[in-house]
Design a protein around this nucleic acid. Sequence first.
DNA 1: CCATTGACCAGCT
DNA 2: AAGCTGGCCAATG
Length: 101
Amino acid sequence: MNPEFREAVYQIIAAIPPGKVSSYGAVARQAGFPHHARFVGRLMSQLPEDTRLPWHRVLRSDRHIALVGTPAGQIQIQRLRDENIPVINDRVPKPYFLVPQ
DNA sequence: CCATTGACCAGCT
DNA sequence: AAGCTGGCCAATG
């Protein structure tokens, strides 16, 4: 991937405040690379386990958490709840989104 | 080079 | 609300 894209994405995600969430598409758009939502996901899948990036605050545009039913998905739910973001049926309620979807 | 594969998305039914 | 469809586009084999 283009390093510019990668850096921009990291920057945007790092800027999502605790208690709020965003989506892959929104992150891609804000990074200046529309149509690249899938690559935001690709980058997430390649993050080291000890990354400091709040990747758990990035959801799908339909408000579902990523990777439902996988270990990473469970971790994501746990981390969201740890910062008082409710997860109901693998979803986060609309008001918690930083940017309107 | 062609086909398949995604931590995806918007529009339609 | 939930499922389908077509679009997206770099990486992978």
